[in-house]
Amino acid sequence: MSIEFNKVSYIYSEKTPFEYAALHDIDLLIKEKKMTAIIGATGSGKSTLVQHLNALLLPSGGKLKVLDFEIVAKEKATNLKALRSHVGLVFQFPEYQLFEETIMKDLCFGPKNFGASDEEAQKKAIHALKLVGLDESYLEKSPLDLSGGQKRRVAIAGILAMEPDILVLDEPTAGLDPQGAVQMMSLFKELNQKYAKTVLVVTHDMEHVLNYCDEVVVMKKGTIYAHTTVKEFFKDTSYLDELHILPPAIVRVRQMLNERGFHLPSDCYDMKQLCSAIAKEVKHHG
């Protein structure tokens, strides 16, 4: 029931002078019910990769398996709509997809397309709106009258209302204020833990990777450069330097202290642990 890429490649505008190979022979296995971060420099193919998950892009080569659905290059894919009801994809800047007169109608749009009755759809809509931290007073407002951050929440709620098993988010926190970003990430974590959803997040923020994700996939020039657990990933800072990734603050503090003579364990990733480790060592010396 997981997500499995098998030698997937993707070429934009194939067989034209504008041809561009964005993915090369991707082999990737994403575990069910985990929260996985996808990172990499801009243009490395993250958005291209995630659009394969609900068959918005079909592979030019190879095959992929998502839940029970199998998509093979050059074969006619069937049942895409069913796949899309199981995989909710939130695009970069999703606020541009709002279009109904009221937020209620916009939230009901997805569920209804997938065959929910009016009542069911409304129930799902109200629930989704609560999840993203907006109250029911918003339901009758026009989505176009909201602030940018509120629009983003409504757009994400529009996908949550479809109650997908797999939630894919392409830079969901870009352009949000720091507090809003933390709230969003906590929400995804909650969906992952409380509702057992598989979550994939494309992000540039290493703090988010460290604090919320279980696994991390690093992309580079259309290939998978690394795929490990988050803890493993931030252990070895020389590796991060090689990738030109600035580690999260806590990893940097630990690294600097170790360079100046401390011997802090490489697996402490929160403030409390780090502080007690430092205290222990200071006492030991004193």
Partner: peptide, 16 residues
């Protein structure tokens, strides 16, 4: 480009 993007976004919401 914008049309393509919105089409994809709405396709994700079940538009056919």
């Amino acid at each position: 480009e914008e049309t393509e993007r919105i089409m994809k976004a709405q396709a994700s919401r079940g538009v056919d």
